[in-house]
């Protein structure tokens, strides 16, 4: 059981929470994630990256976007509430070393998992160029945190409401064309963004790491639900990853697998939203009485 000790809304659909998790806070390394469940018997297990951790307070920070049932329910929880199931840190930590110049590309909520990695890369002596992308100004998160560590920070939005009006792949291409091309790129965001980042760097032969967000159940290598095709081999994201060489990942298959349950999930989520609405209406009616 993990108590929520702080909660903050970062943008319309993105929340940050700090959870009590002493052991995880001590052991976690950049690139690792947790799995949580909101009900012991019927809850779904969802993976979320450990965005930050504090050994002194024994807490970890998660940043999540509301996309479906479980993230919706989590966003409704408050400080003092308990998350009944929290397990981690899971996954293989990012391989942090001195590469030289690294470009960290974060799309949307992907900036959250990117942050601890960028921070560790910086601490290892790398020059860190950061590209942060979002659909619009409202959805840009963690700008200040990124500013603190980045030697160069580029922000782009799809609609141009903030920073450059561009997709992240545009500045990424320019950086690859500089005299001193980067030694490594790490891209985290929606699968489609990671796919195109990998395509952008491929001609320049810049090693590009991506962090895959497949569907997971156990997170320990037992179920194979998180499997992806990497360089023609089957890999399990929860134990072999979540990071892989983006030039070898079969993104199309991964994206198809990610949508395995779309119809069911949407139905469930819609049901839940309906119940929430009913509850709110009842509350208002009660108040009016």
């Amino acid at each position: 059981m993990a108590k929520i000790v702080s909660k903050k809304q970062l943008s319309e659909n993105v929340y940050q929470m700090e959870l009590e998790a002493k052991l995880i806070s001590e052991e976690r390394k950049a690139g690792q994630f947790i799995i949580l469940q909101l009900d012991e018997n019927y809850g779904e297990r969802i993976p979320l990256t450990i965005a930050d951790a504090n050994k002194e307070t024994g807490t970890i920070t998660i940043i999540f976007q509301v996309v479906g049932l479980t993230t919706e329910e989590l966003s409704q929880m408050n400080v003092g509430d308990n998350v009944p199931v929290l397990v981690g840190p899971l996954g293989t930590p990012t391989h942090i070393k001195k590469y030289g110049t690294v470009v960290c590309v974060g799309g949307g909520i992907g900036v959250a998992p990117l942050h601890p990695i960028a921070e560790a890369l910086k601490a290892a002596g790398n020059k860190v160029i950061t590209i942060v992308g979002a659909r619009n100004k409202e959805l840009v998160i963690m700008e200040d945190e990124m500013k603190k560590i980045a030697d160069e920070l580029i922000i782009c939005t799809d609609d141009g409401s903030y920073g450059r009006k561009a997709l992240v792949t545009e500045p990424l291409k320019e950086i690859c064309e500089r005299d001193q091309k980067p030694d490594m790129v790490i891209a985290i965001g929606p699968p489609i963004m990671m796919k195109f980042c990998a395509e952008t760097t491929r001609p320049y032969e810049v090693y590009t790491e991506v962090s895959l967000n497949t569907i997971m159940v156990d997170g320990t290598g037992m179920c194979g639900g998180c499997r992806v095709n990497v360089g023609g081999q089957v890999k399990f994201v929860c134990v072999d990853g979540p990071e892989f060489d983006g030039h070898l990942v079969d993104f199309d298959n991964m994206m198809a697998r990610l949508h395995s349950y779309d119809e069911i999930e949407h139905e469930k989520h819609a049901c839940y939203i309906d119940t929430l609405a009913d509850k709110k209406i009842k509350e208002i009616e009660e108040a009016q009485k």
């Binding site: 909101l38 009900d39 297990r45 049932l69 349950y261 119809e263 069911i264 469930k268």
Partner: peptide, 9 residues
């Protein structure tokens, strides 16, 4: 009815 974890139809 109760489970959040989906199963393939």
């Amino acid at each position: 009815e109760h489970a959040d974890t989906p199963i393939y139809p």
